[in-house]
């Protein structure tokens, strides 16, 4: 039985993002990808996020927020 829902929301503040790609490097489950057209990170596979928060921690300008699941 799960104590929390599986739904995850990953917000990237594009206005603050410096396009350094560190969040993509930090994501070990291939959730974040580089969007070539928009020249920025994109949340390609949100269903596979395991809430490790490595992307948040890697971001030098704190523009990513992995929203915690709710009970």
């Amino acid at each position: 039985m799960n104590g929390v829902t599986n739904k995850v929301e990953i917000k990237i503040d594009k206005a603050v993002c410096k396009s350094c790609k560190l969040c993509i490097d930090a994501c070990f489950v291939d959730v974040l990808r580089w969007d070539v057209e928009k020249a920025g990170p994109t949340v390609a596979y949100p269903e596979d996020c395991v809430w490790c928060l490595a992307c948040e921690d890697a971001c030098p300008v704190q523009c990513i927020n992995v929203k915690p699941p709710s009970n």
Binding site: N2, G3, V4, N6, F28, V29, V50, W51, C52, P69
Partner: peptide
């Protein structure tokens, strides 16, 4: 393999 954190109650593994 890593599951979602806080989901299963057991110790979380960071393995892909």
């Amino acid at each position: 393999r890593a599951k979602k954190k806080w989901e299963g109650g057991d110790e979380w593994m960071g393995a892909a």
